[in-house]
Nucleic acid binder design. Structure first.
Length: 549
RNA sequence: GCGCCAGUAGCUCAGUAGGAUAGAGCAGCAGCCUUCUAAGCUGCGGGUCAGGGGUUCGAAUCCCUUCUGGCGUGCCA
């Protein structure tokens, strides 16, 4: 918000000097405090189009800028930067604006655009693993921040409850069930699901229905087993996600889509658009005409359809439901899939820029320095529930949120189990708890003001205090940038920086002191606001804000 | 082979509409608790931003190229 004021002022000066300004200049906070509180590259950026040397231009602008008394100092530096040193009054004014807002940082930037965020969408053939946990933390946090910045986002989980994998699941369950009834089944098939959870499912079904399933015909039995396994596993996934603080506005079932006939519809659309052909008894989509590197099968030679068709149908329903931005959060193994979906959008005359895919890179699991390969089929996975019970929801969410999407992520189990302060979430939460503790003390010593008033602010003039205010002032713009670039990890960085400033401030100054009540009031007002802003950040990340630790 | 993503301190990672002396946490070393919580603070050490070239006032960031790693390249999902 301070940046906006400065930007407007610089623009005003540019206009008053009748300079052309086709190129965009920026206001930034220099990483070295010697270069002022804020700085602009305006003279460097605009010198060419105005045919004037950068330093001369900067001097000219500074002369005008200095007419505003809100600056302590405005000076030229380096090749032509203009550095601003603000008088405390400007920070204090900004602080008052921040203090007054209940939902500080909320904006209407997104214009209520309907955005569909699809993430996790794991096969319902087993418990959710660490990779899904990463997707859940990422997608949910992005949802919260977009919502806060004026978009109208919705979270959705696509349930892959039809097709091959589910059949294999049912077969695996049947084998375990037979085992339970004393049948010798020999080696468990390689393709089948080996995880312990299948045994648990079998036990549960056995307890409920005994051997009744075996009376059914082959087809009825498979359908029954499928239905049972799916509902159990889906519920398991839903509850894991809920424990992780993630809920979805929608759960869309592939099976349901198929029953509604949407899939045939899509096939007919593609055929009408003359984008399909028959080859080797299969029906193909000529996706190469639309930018894919090979054509894709829609219907296999055995008459069944590929995964692609219902998934495309699903994406089209998103558009039909009025969403104008479709964001898919995918694992890295799906990137080869994107060109064909885009191709289909183009083939059907949809704007494929509506579709945006975010790739989360994989999570590499380590155990005592050794890379562990995970495989759902082989039953070797670290589940999301394991993760939550071992490191806790807050630490786990933070761990995933704090890293940008397209970076590989190394996860060391032993390290996580130590549950030490390796995870910076404690650093942030501790800062919050410390503020609460100060307030408690202030109340106990009866120096906590009934109301915070504007004139208290003038006592805030220490470098550290103004720096804290500057940091607070940065949040609204940051949240918008996070929404635009889909980079929730930057909020974690912000929170760590804010927490660090708080810790240093705390160590250097006595906040609560009965000897100087006015100063205490002013500082408590600052603490109150920092706490409030940190609370907003925690909420946006789905992490709890502890009153004490 | 082709395609996508990545390579920044001992480790895990920030920094990207190009900005000034590349940052943080952990680990290491040395200090700081009779005073608001030491899950904290202060200081020290630690770097050829994978290598090379280019673009320009200016590059970790943009372009080209080489190397290394991961993933993809199913009538699987």
């Amino acid at each position: 918000m301070i940046k906006d004021l400065l930007h407007a002022h610089v623009l005003e000066v540019i206009n008053s000097l009748s300079l052309s300004h086709d190129k965009e200049f920026i206001i930034e906070i220099p990483n070295n405090t010697e270069f002022g509180d804020y700085s602009t590259n305006a003279a460097l950026v605009l010198c060419k189009e105005n045919k004037i040397a950068p330093k001369a231009l900067a001097e000219k602008m500074i002369k005008e800028l200095k007419k505003n008394k809100a600056y302590k100092k405005v000076e030229i530096a380096g090749p032509g930067f203009i550095n601003f040193y603000l008088a405390p009054g400007m920070y204090q004014q900004a602080f008052w604006e921040i203090y007054k807002l209940e939902e500080y940082g909320r904006s209407e930037y997104g214009n209520q655009e309907k955005v569909l965020l699809e993430f996790v969408s794991a096969n319902p053939t087993g418990p959710l693993n660490i990779v899904s946990a990463r997707a859940a933390a990422f997608g949910d946090t992005l949802f919260r921040i977009m919502n806060y910045t004026g978009y109208a986002p919705a979270r959705e989980f696509y349930i892959n409850d039809a097709g091959n994998q589910v059949d294999i699941l049912a077969e695996s369950l049947e084998l375990r069930l037979r085992e339970l009834h004393g049948e010798k089944i020999g080696d468990f098939p390689y393709e089948a699901y080996h995880g312990e959870y299948v045994k648990h499912l079998a036990q549960r079904l056995n307890a409920l229905e005994g051997s009744r399933v075996f009376m059914l015909t082959e087809k009825d039995r498979m359908d029954h087993l499928k239905e049972f396994a799916l509902s159990e596993l889906l519920e398991m996934q839903r509850s894991s996600l809920e424990k992780f603080g993630v809920t979805f506005e929608g759960w869309v079932s592939e099976k349901t889509l198929r029953m509604e006939g949407v899939v045939e519809e899509v096939l007919s659309y593609l055929t009408e658009a003359e984008c399909t052909y028959e080859k080797e008894d299969a029906i193909w989509f000529c996706s190469t005409k639309f930018g894919d590197d090979k054509d894709r099968v829609l219907m296999k030679s055995d008459g069944s359809i590929t995964y692609f068709v219902p998934d495309l149908a699903y994406h089209l329903t998103k558009i039909q439901r009025g969403f104008t931005k479709l964001i898919d959060v995918f694992g890295p193994d799906h990137h080869g899939y994107v060109p064909r979906i885009r191709a289909a959008f183009r083939a059907l005359n949809y704007d494929d820029t509506m579709l945006e895919i975010i790739f989360l890179q994989q999570v590499n699991l380590f155990e005592s320095g050794e890379r562990v390969k995970m495989s759902k089929r082989a039953g070797k996975i670290v589940t999301m529930d394991d993760l939550i019970s071992v490191v806790g929801k807050d630490a786990a969410r933070y761990f995933f949120i704090a890293r940008k999407a397209n970076a590989h992520l190394n996860f060391d189990l032993e390290l996580a189990m130590k549950q030490n302060n390796e995870n910076p979430v404690y650093y942030c939460q501790y800062a919050y708890a410390r503020i609460c503790s100060m307030m408690k003390k202030a109340r106990k010593e009866k120096v906590y003001p009934k109301h915070f008033k504007k004139d208290m602010i003038t006592k805030l003039n220490k470098t550290e205090e103004l720096a804290l205010i500057q940091k607070l002032a940065d949040l609204p713009e940051l949240l918008i940038l996070i929404s635009i670039h889909r980079e929730p990890h930057r909020l974690a960085t912000y929170l760590e920086e804010l927490a660090g400033m708080l810790h240093r401030y705390y160590a250097k100054y006595q906040i609560v002191s009965a000897k100087s009540v006015d100063l205490t009031h002013a500082r408590l007002m600052l603490m109150h606001t920092v706490k409030h802003v940190m609370g907003i950040c925690f909420e946006l990340m789905g992490i709890s804000a502890p009153e004490k630790m």
